[in-house]
Design a protein around this nucleic acid. Structure first.
Length: 593
RNA sequence: GGACCCGUGGUGGAGAUGGUUACCAUGCCGGCCUGUCACGCCGGAGGUCGCGAGUUCGAUCCUCGUCGGGUCCGCCA
């Protein structure tokens, strides 16, 4: 009998938890048929539940009835088995399973449910089309690796939560239905029946609410906050994702860094039993750019950028001379051998480099009988020699050289470094964790023709620099910001926030957010800042990415129970879907084709 | 919005520079089998080669388009 809400044989044990201690005991197990082997009169079933596997033997000498039912069992059937735990006979131990020395001799069996033949392999970890996996996600989730991913995720979240609780943080929920804040990413809008023409927005982050909680005197807040951004998806980006959102009052940068470091250390210890040395390494933003050409450097691979500017201080080569003359730099990236870079690959790199503003890409290859490069004949032997020495190059090495404005050179070589790294083998089980500090306060937005907040508009600038450069050269202003970077992935970021209305207004002004506009959008914040807003700051850590790295996955889709495809579609539920005329009418919405 | 890769029985792959019955593995169904565990052996079923158009005597293969999936750039305060 099945489907009656009654389990005749209710589980007493979990499959994976059966040990030698249980030998001789009668147990009842509930689970799925992972696979089975039917040898005439003897039937073996590997039963699976969340805890693991154990082998069930159906022997007609033990129970003819159970054996008869087992004959018709198929993969993914849901079974309840009563049987006696016993040691496997000599020579039949399977070391691949934790319970490989044991088996359960079935006395009784209840088929709790049958199953169609699954369209994807549940009992194997082979590559399957991801679209199909998502369409049958509930089957995909039965796979060992997916269960592990979600269990690890759970452990990470619980570990972080315990740490924060122990450090006097209060968990507070903030609204999912909130107001649109046009700065930043594209908003998801939610129309509401109650107010035609008006929309809620889903939060890109609880930014303003967490600041209001500080003004509200909560002092230490955290939340596992779902965030929504209507932007294109990537391997490490979904439309919705989860952050460990943290905010603290009466703190400086150091306080946030050390609380976060403590959390990272705790989580790695609890979940992976790995010791993380704290305090973590720190790089100034400018140093990260200079040495790695990236604000989220992956330092596991070395390959730092090499400054060659002074090598060419007296050069006759026009391009380099002009670069130096206009305060530019000449820098190189060394690649130990050029096997990964064909001529056409170099051409592709050059195209990419030009897109970020570089004038060109020079390559130089050291060979047994000298040097090969399009610019070799313009350089003196001494220059080539000191380049080679500066880069500690040996024969076979290739140098990629870019000359020009410092930030363009850094970005260009950083891109090449990224391409190089992607070709190198992944050092597994290694974690390069660091802080990148002091990002620029603003960047220039070419499209909108204005300065834009590099972090967000509530970030505390370096006050001295703010005063000095806000009217002359705002790009020189630094900010009290920090990014947590793990293995070249931006794992989290935060800042000290502005806590006075005067400064907040000045910053809006710099960002060309008009007084009236500011009042309209952020008036409630400006007002709140009038009432004794404490100094405060915080950080947000991307849970999905953290779990991805800690479980050795390349995509956050593997650590998200129900993710969407790259085009924002859910093949399981077929969301998003069309809605009825009636629903639209109620919302006063008409679709224009 | 752009570049690139992929789409072949349920699943994962192979395929020919356009021509017989589209190949392999696995899965599925049936039979045999009392120590299997990727069980084994025997037999069988299963395909609009993503979709559309074009070129051609003939297209799974070439061309164009389109849809779907993926990686990256733009975008992601």
């Amino acid at each position: 009998m099945r489907g009656e809400g009654v389990i005749r044989l209710k589980r007493t044990h979990n499959c994976g938890d059966i040990t030698r201690e249980d030998i001789g005991k009668e147990v009842i197990l509930n689970g799925w048929v992972n696979d089975m082997r039917k040898l005439g009169n003897l039937i073996f079933v590997t039963l699976r539940d969340r805890s693991g596997f154990i082998q069930i033997v159906f022997d007609p000498r033990v129970s003819i009835q159970a054996h008869n039912i087992a004959k018709d069992v198929r993969k993914e059937y849901v079974l309840a088995i009563k049987g006696k735990v016993k040691e496997r006979p000599e020579g039949t131990i399977n070391p691949a399973y934790k319970t490989g020395e044991l088996e359960v001799a079935a006395i009784d069996i209840e088929v709790l449910n049958t199953s169609k033949t699954p369209p994807i392999y549940v009992n194997r970890d082979n590559r399957t089309d991801e679209d199909l996996r998502l369409r049958y996600r509930y089957l995909d989730l039965r796979r060992r690796s997916m269960q592990k991913n979600l269990i690890q995720r759970h452990k990470i979240v619980q570990s972080a939560r315990a740490y924060l609780n122990e450090n006097s943080f209060i968990e507070v929920e903030t609204p999912i239905l909130t107001r649109s804040t046009p700065e930043g990413a594209r908003d998801f809008l939610v129309p509401w029946r109650g107010k035609p023409g008006y929309c809620f927005a889903l939060p890109q982050s609880p930014q303003l609410f967490k600041q209001l909680l500080m003004i509200g005197g909560l002092e230490r807040y955290y939340q596992f906050a779902r965030c929504f951004r209507d932007e294109d998806l990537r391997a490490d980006r979904q439309l919705e994702f989860t952050q460990i959102d943290i905010e603290m009052s009466f703190v400086e940068v150091e306080d946030i860094l050390s609380i976060t470091e403590g959390m990272v250390k705790r989580v790695f210890k609890d979940v992976l039993n790995k010791e993380i040395d704290i305090p973590l390494n720190r790089l100034q933003y400018s140093e990260a750019m200079d040495r790695y050409g990236s604000d989220k450097p992956d330092r596991r691979y070395g390959h730092e950028l090499i400054d060659l500017t002074d090598v060419f201080c007296n050069t006759t080569f026009k391009i380099f001379r002009n670069t130096i003359g206009s305060n530019g730099v000449i820098k190189a990236l060394k690649v130990e051998n050029d096997l990964a870079f064909s001529r056409s690959a170099i051409d592709d790199l050059e195209d990419a480099v030009k897109e970020v503003g570089a004038k060109g890409l020079i390559w130089m290859k050291f060979e047994n009988n000298g040097v090969r490069s399009p610019i070799a004949r313009f350089l003196s032997a001494a220059e080539i020699e000191s380049m080679k020495e500066r880069c500690s190059s040996s024969n076979g090495d290739i140098l990629f050289i870019v000359a020009g404005d410092r930030s363009i050179v850094n970005t260009a070589l950083g891109m090449i470094r990224g391409t190089l790294i992607s070709k190198l083998p992944d050092p597994e089980e290694t974690f390069d964790i660091l802080w990148v500090l002091n990002f620029p306060f603003v960047e220039w937005d070419k499209e909108e023709n204005r300065y834009k907040a590099e972090h967000h508009p509530f970030t505390m600038p370096n006050l001295e620099e703010f005063k000095r450069y806000k009217d002359t050269d705002p790009l020189k202003i630094g900010s009290l910001t920090y990014d947590l970077v793990i293995n070249g992935v931006e794992m989290g970021s935060g800042s000290i926030r502005i806590n006075t209305p005067q400064l907040q207004r000045e910053v809006f002004e710099l960002l060309s957010i008009k007084e009236r506009e500011a009042e309209k959008r952020f008036g409630f914040l400006l007002e709140a800042l009038e009432y004794g807003a404490p100094p405060h700051g915080g950080v947000a850590i991307g849970i999905d990415r953290l779990v991805m790295l800690m479980t050795g996955n390349r995509s956050i889709r593997n650590v998200t129970a129900f993710p969407k495809t790259k085009s924002g579609f859910d093949p399981l539920t077929n969301a998003p879907s069309k809605v009825s005329e009636k629903q639209l009418k109620e919302l006063h919405i008409r679709i224009i084709e």
